[in-house]
Design a protein around this nucleic acid. Sequence first.
DNA 1: GTGAAAGCGCTAACAG
DNA 2: CTGTTAGCGCTTTCAC
Lengths: 331, 331
Amino acid sequence: MTVTIYDVAREANVSMATVSRVVNGNPNVKPSTRTKVLETIERLGYRPNAVARGLASKKTTTVGAIIPDVSNIFFSELARGIEDIATMYKYNIILNNSDQNRERELQLIDTMYEKQVDGILFMSDNISKEHIEQFKGESVPVVLAATYDEKNRVPSVNINYEAAGYEATKYLIDQGNERIAFISGDKEAVINQLKYQGYIRALKESFLPINDDYILNNQYTHDDAVQSIQQLLEMTDKPTAVFTTSDELALGAIHGTQDKGYKVPEDLEVFGFNNTRLATMVRPALTTIDQPTYDIGAVAMRLLTKLMNKEEVEESNVILPHRIVERNSTK
Amino acid sequence: MTVTIYDVAREANVSMATVSRVVNGNPNVKPSTRTKVLETIERLGYRPNAVARGLASKKTTTVGAIIPDVSNIFFSELARGIEDIATMYKYNIILNNSDQNRERELQLIDTMYEKQVDGILFMSDNISKEHIEQFKGESVPVVLAATYDEKNRVPSVNINYEAAGYEATKYLIDQGNERIAFISGDKEAVINQLKYQGYIRALKESFLPINDDYILNNQYTHDDAVQSIQQLLEMTDKPTAVFTTSDELALGAIHGTQDKGYKVPEDLEVFGFNNTRLATMVRPALTTIDQPTYDIGAVAMRLLTKLMNKEEVEESNVILPHRIVERNSTK
DNA sequence: GTGAAAGCGCTAACAG
DNA sequence: CTGTTAGCGCTTTCAC
């Protein structure tokens, strides 16, 4: 059957402890016996059992990642960043889709605890008291990635969404636009609210009126945005620019505009968010906020490795830089 | 510290065996003692340790998924299909990115065995003898998803790529095109070769010449396709249509054409592959082969559950249907 | 319907 | 530098 550490020990005429030492790279082994053990491991085709190891050592070298939806391009880029750093530090990722469903999120966290993960990476639009309680109830470190907790109760990696929203809107204002629409995803999502606040701040600062008709904050897909931009374009005082909270929505805005016979950016300037790969896969190419998506995942995972390793962490609520990438969807 | 099955047993005045039985839904427990145990589980906040359980039962309810790149939209949709069915059957997924690197793939498979996964879902452009040997060396069931092994040595879920390639090309021919280009990803990938064979078969069947200059088979990204289509468009006898092996490449072809001042589909008809979400996120919207990406993942995972459960499987090399979706990138 | 006891394969003191 | 010995927390016969 399967060959165990015991078989190797017997065949190599050493104790299991010694085999364990060489497998774990413990230096306290005489070179000659090390080679002997290594040889018989090779010969027998021994492969350590991570489950047994996990039970004995209370470490599984596995982390749980709870993500709204891997098939969403933003999150899949995040996931890739997480995965790459995890690999670098010899961790495996158990990936779970939550669809932002709170019940499911809570249940997934529980399952991750059952599986004895060494750490958790959590992504969601909103985190509640129940989330925090569940995290605090265990000693497993948690890091939030692209997920905002106003009270910073949990380590996290984000960008400054409010500033980004402000800058995008300001950019549009500086282009001479006075009627700027705002198209966002779920309005309950804290991150979208922050972007919205930035939008409002920029308008107010320039003494521009806030027109509720220009604000559509429950759009989810490309096609939703196609619809809603067309609706805006039918107004008599139609907007001349739109700021959207994701690139996918921005593509929808561009296409909706074009479908109606208008031109981007001549008739409508479009500003996106995230700078996902979609941003260059459209014509005109999208002006957008470059959010270092991959890096957020990578930095969050790196932070988690430090936490799991009980290393000192200077700053546990990391804010990564963002910037405006100008392309042709704005003048 | 953490509460174990032993603590529950003591508190409930039963043996660990009984606690184990109620936790596992074993019917041989008197209802009254079941409730008693359930209550103390609740009271103590007992949560079974999946690692210990895995060691004792030799089942981890975890499956390994080895995927080229989650951040690729095609694979992320596949991954989502896998994940959803896995959840349905109470399995967790350990997700690994291989970047199609054979060394890495082999090493990941090994890691999955170490982690004692109950099954493996494998995705790659090519599978070699080494892969097969590694799979056969263990009794862990494996299913290939959107991954073709000519010899059907491993259970798999695919579509008929050759037929799809043929149909796409035939469609373009029936539109009156005689100069049809072919833009594909890695030419070493078996799946791309099959699509290519279908392309060739359609041309031959209609007695159309095969022009090697029209065949560009090592394009990976949207921007690669932008370049290469522009190159084709500079030829004196430029193609009037192009068949690409992915939607991303098709978007590149569309945008390259438009960037050069030509129109799609008037000057060039473009045919994609996969019908990912990208297909409707472009103007003109993309005519493409609808490959049931999510379903391939879902069916593959379902097949794997049967294999893990040692159920009878009527057909272990599943071919799912595909179809042409007509949109506006063709006339 | 319930309990006792033997592992599952490995790590981690502790000796020597 | 190496071996002995407890467990880690649970499942699973096998009795009763």
